[in-house]
């Protein structure tokens, strides 16, 4: 099963994502903000990164940009978890190098379906 990095400053959201993915057999590492996610990504290789957009210290968009600058994260799927329903924010994420997004609120089934969509 896949190694997934879940990044969100909200403990409840992060908990829900991690719990759901673990339940589906994935190995999940949690990070509270973009900076901590980068630290985690430096130490181990992930198959998928799920990241919130609005976070303190380092937001999701800067995190994507920094991850994409690492050669080992060039083609790794990164999905933004966003409540932004308008297009600009999604496009900003895309421009930074995100693979796609999952719009909040999502339920565990939607999350798993999306993860399956990327991981195949």
């Amino acid at each position: 099963m896949a190694k997934i990095l879940a990044v969100d400053d909200s403990a409840s959201m992060r908990g829900m994502v991690a719990f759901t993915l673990r339940g589906a057999g994935h190995e999940v590492t949690e990070a509270e903000n973009g900076q901590l996610a980068l630290d985690a990504a430096g130490g181990s290789a992930f198959d998928l990164v799920l990241a919130d957009v609005n976070m303190p210290v380092m937001d999701g968009i800067s995190m994507v940009r920094a991850l994409r600058a690492k050669p080992e994260y060039k083609g790794v799927p990164i999905l933004m978890l966003t409540t932004e329903s308008h297009t600009e924010k999604k496009m900003e994420g895309k421009a930074a190098g995100a693979t796609g997004w999952l719009v909040k609120p999502f339920d565990p089934e939607q999350l798993l379906a999306t993860v399956k969509r990327v991981l195949g």
Binding site: S12, M13, N54, M55, T83, K104, P105
Partner: peptide, 17 residues
């Protein structure tokens, strides 16, 4: 930003749960 982020997180969580 702090104010926005707080409202934003609550909105996201409230909708999710």
């Amino acid at each position: 930003h702090t104010i926005f982020r707080a409202a934003h997180s609550i909105k996201g969580g409230a909708a999710t749960f």
